[in-house]
Design a protein around this nucleic acid. Sequence first.
RNA 1: GUCCCCAUCGUCUAGCCUGGUCUAGGACAUCAGAUUUUCAUUCUGACGACUGGGGUUCAAAUCCCCAUGGGGACGCCA
Length: 426
Amino acid sequence: MVRVRFAPSPTGYLHIGSARTALFNWLYARRYKGKLLLRIEDTDRTRSEKRFLDEIVMDLKWLGIDWDEEPVHQSARFEIYRKAAEEIVKQGLGYREGEAYIFRVPKGRTIEIDDMIHGKITFNTDEIKDQVMIKSDGSPVYNFCCVIDDAFLKITHIIRGDDHVSNTPKQILFYEAMGLAIPQFGHMPLIMGMDGAKLSKRHGGVSVEEYKREGFLPEALVNYLLLLGWSPGSDREIIPIEEAVKAFDINNMKGVQAKFDIQKLRWMNGEYIAAKPDKELLELIKKQMLDTGKACPATDDKLLEVIKLYKVRIKTLSEFVQMTDYFFSDDYSIDEKAAGKHLVSPESKNALREFAARLERLNDFSHSAIEGECRSMAEEMKLKPGAIIHPTRVAISGKTTGAGLFEMMEVLGKSKALERMRKAVV
RNA sequence: GUCCCCAUCGUCUAGCCUGGUCUAGGACAUCAGAUUUUCAUUCUGACGACUGGGGUUCAAAUCCCCAUGGGGACGCCA
């Protein structure tokens, strides 16, 4: 049976690259009806923190990545690692150096790994120095306890980042020294920023948490990550995770590092938002407002109307909050440049004044009635509709973009709309 | 520096394994036009790539070698 693992170290937030590693392990486990285990690599006691672990667990769950069996903490297994190191020294394969246990790397050997993604990779042990197993402070070194635990957990396939390829021959040496079965390895290329450099803050976020906060949907993030290095072999791009599980094949994974393109992620997020049922979106947006420190400013019904207007126009949930501020408060952001362009000329003011006067007499404030009034006014006054529409839009929303003007006005309501139009002409 | 990985449009990729169907397909982004004269959606179109050089072959994006470029690793970090 397939047994894979994700082994985060709780020394920081869940990195987007780690999330991808977790995702592919999860996919592999689910595809072959195996198990995904979680192992906490908290051997560095000074840098490991509970709050990071909690955050990582939360983010994994948020992404929809679940695991089997109880997580194993390496910090609870120090004694096991030390005993194993002692045994190796006893067998003459290593030596002590003070409190530390060191593994003697045999010279002149070729180590070949048959990587699931890269194919054959060979190393010569002459390139490898003797390896510390247990440090002077009694804590184990990563490559050593990693092997012991992977064997202990009966891991069959190790899928991890390319930054581990050079660790692999060292680990194989440990497997051999302890007479343990060697699992299959698959190393996936790292994700880079758009400039080709290591993904960092200036590329727009490195932790899953930042994307969550920005209002990306987990489905979208997962779908995007999925396509970074893997493709179903067809032109499909929007792939629900259940389908990905069915179609996943590690042989389709590319050995090429990919650049993280936030634009494409945004597009994909917009697709998922637009496809989301209104009611579900409502809950997500309320939560988004709450998380950004704002109380939900309106009733569900009102919010729902606004959502219907905006769901095809937003790329992230946080975008919704800024784009629709004028519905919920008189203290909304105003695009000064747009105001200068559409609200100052006498023509604009006239148009606004007249349009407001005509709307005042309207009993039916539906979008079609408003539009009818706008069109007939334009015709009577020999104006282009745009000469009324643009000033009105800026007057009531402070923006040049948004929903269709007439729908916008209907949802805003007659009194608010007129109030703002009149305020704009004084 | 040494070792390892990688190389198709600006970006993600299909094609490569099993050479010919590739004057290289799709998506994002960009630009232009259309959609009952607003925002957006949508649609249509444009732009745009096989890193270079050798070799193998009747034939190479596809196989081999070299160069170049990018990345990773060389910790008593994980």
